[in-house]
Lab assay of single mutants.
Amino acid sequence: TSEVNPQMLQDLQAAGFDEDMVIQALQKTNNRSIEAAIEFISKM
């Protein structure tokens, strides 16, 4: 599995997102940004 940015993971979990969804979103967006991860999650 590709690495996820631990700070982004922590921030998104703090915002109430599920850890598994956050990890998948960060991997799919290559840790580009929190906004990109949220957009990915919203389309899941």
Rank of each mutant, 00 (worst) to 15 (best):
Q7M: 08
E19Q: 13
G16Q: 00
Q27G: 06
M21T: 15
K28F: 09
I41F: 03
D18C: 08
G16P: 01
I34F: 08
A36E: 15
Q27W: 02
T29W: 00
T1Y: 07
K43I: 04
N5E: 04
Q24T: 13
K43C: 09
I23D: 06
I34T: 14
N5G: 01
Q13T: 13
S42W: 10
Q27Y: 08
T29Q: 02
M8H: 07
Q24E: 15
N5Q: 03
A25W: 01
D20G: 11
V22L: 03
D18Y: 00
Q10C: 07
E35S: 10
F17I: 05
A37H: 02
A14D: 14
A37L: 01
A36F: 01
K28Y: 13
E19F: 06
Q7W: 04
Q10L: 09
K43L: 10
E35L: 03
L9R: 11
L12E: 03
L26H: 11
L26D: 05
D20C: 08
A25M: 00
R32Q: 15
L9F: 11
S33W: 00
D11I: 11
D20L: 06
Q13F: 03
M44L: 11
E19G: 11
S2M: 10
D18F: 02
R32E: 15
L26Y: 14
V22E: 05
S33N: 02
E19L: 07
K43S: 12
Q13V: 15
M8L: 08
Q10S: 11
L26A: 03
T1V: 09
E3K: 12
T29F: 00
A14G: 08
I23S: 08
A36W: 01
I38L: 11
A14C: 06
A37K: 00
V4R: 03
A37D: 04
M8Y: 09
N5L: 00
K43W: 07
F40A: 13
E19K: 15
A15P: 00
A25K: 01
I34Y: 04
Q10A: 14
S33T: 02
I34M: 14
Q24Y: 07
K43A: 14
M8K: 03
K28M: 12
T1P: 08
S33M: 00
V4W: 02
I38V: 13
S2I: 13
M8I: 04
N5M: 00
M21V: 15
Q24H: 15
D18L: 02
I34K: 14
R32P: 04
M44S: 12
D20E: 13
A15W: 04
P6W: 08
